[in-house]
Amino acid sequence: MARNTFEAWIPEEFDSAVIQRVNQMSAVEAIASPEPMSSNSKSIPRSAGVGVSLVDKGGAYSEDVSANDDLTLTAKKIGKAIRIAEEDIDDSLANIIATKQADWATSYAKFLDNATLAVSAAPGTGVPFASVYYTLTQADSGLGYGANDNITTAASGGVTYDDLSAVLEDVEGGDYFDLSRMVVIAHPSYRGTLRRIKDDQNQPIFVRGQQGDAGSPDTLFELPIRWSLGCRVSATATDAPTGKPILVVANADFLRLGRRSGPESIFIDGRDGLSALTDESILKMRARRGFALGHPKAAAVLVGI
């Protein structure tokens, strides 16, 4: 029997339409600190810092007693299979496979951002990672962090200037603030809110970026903003969250994204022995990712209404 199949997963090239779509849609994929993974799990050393003290002339140096630990990234598979009728492939003027790959990239981007930033539950069924939002709701005495210390919740009247100032202050007041690496990730619904808020000099705090080849990003209090449709609170990871929109302020170096493989795809031709009775081909797409917030004091979240 004649067959026409690909026998291995084909990784997307860096400049492919799929990768470009993912980077455009996913804030985490685009700006998080990448961590290559060659196995299912990987431990990353986490330094507790090093203190300093005055040393008298001829005196002994005191030894640092900061307690170091580590983070563990565990790769989780995010994927989907699509059945495509041979007639659609043969008869359509459009490239059905390329269209479906781009559609998957959009959904993957929203799913990844939701899973890493906005899921409210602990890792388990339907929850691949401890998201930024979940991590900030949990106390960690070893790191000197109290539950919800870095979470600001808007009142029923909506997000205010003070809310935005407070969420930035949560990070600015800690040891993990680095102006060159700070980013804001927010749901696009914040755009309308931010356009209406001005400072005490009646100047807008939200500045739209200049578009074009040499364009600049949108900014909030001079920090670059990335917009993400995944930034809505949800109980489990999803590519269509419907909960309250959130705004995340974080040091990008502490958004640790493990990359085990992908995005990649495999095409199973409908003319092979398994699918011969259906005249359908199967396109499978996947990526394997791990995620952890490096330190709870390196991020803060504003929950909208």
Score class of each variant (00 low, 15 high):
73 L>Y: 06
157 G>H: 02
283 L>H: 11
146 G>W: 00
163 D>V: 05
180 S>E: 15
245 P>R: 02
64 D>T: 04
216 S>C: 11
131 S>D: 05
141 S>G: 11
176 Y>Q: 13
257 L>F: 06
217 P>N: 09
285 M>R: 03
102 A>Y: 09
215 G>L: 08
3 R>T: 11
53 S>Q: 13
260 R>M: 11
242 T>E: 12
253 D>Y: 10
169 E>R: 13
63 E>C: 00
289 R>W: 02
128 P>R: 04
142 G>M: 01
99 T>P: 02
84 I>C: 03
134 Y>W: 07
87 E>C: 01
37 M>P: 15
205 I>C: 08
126 G>V: 00
18 V>M: 01
72 T>Y: 03
18 V>G: 01
235 A>Y: 06
237 A>N: 10
59 G>L: 07
239 D>Q: 05
24 Q>G: 05
60 A>E: 13
274 L>F: 08
232 R>M: 15
148 N>V: 01
259 R>N: 14
214 A>Q: 12
237 A>S: 14
287 A>E: 10
59 G>E: 09
134 Y>T: 03
56 D>T: 13
87 E>K: 08
229 L>I: 11
75 A>L: 05
192 G>K: 07
116 T>P: 01
240 A>M: 04
280 E>Q: 14
292 A>L: 02
149 D>P: 02
286 R>T: 00
292 A>W: 01
32 A>Q: 12
275 S>I: 00
78 I>Y: 04
52 V>L: 14
190 Y>A: 01
223 L>F: 15
53 S>M: 10
49 G>H: 09
73 L>R: 04
254 F>K: 11
95 N>M: 09
189 S>Q: 08
250 A>T: 11
301 V>S: 03
253 D>I: 03
214 A>N: 14
37 M>L: 15
99 T>E: 13
85 A>S: 12
64 D>R: 01
227 W>T: 14
58 G>H: 06
69 D>I: 04
235 A>P: 05
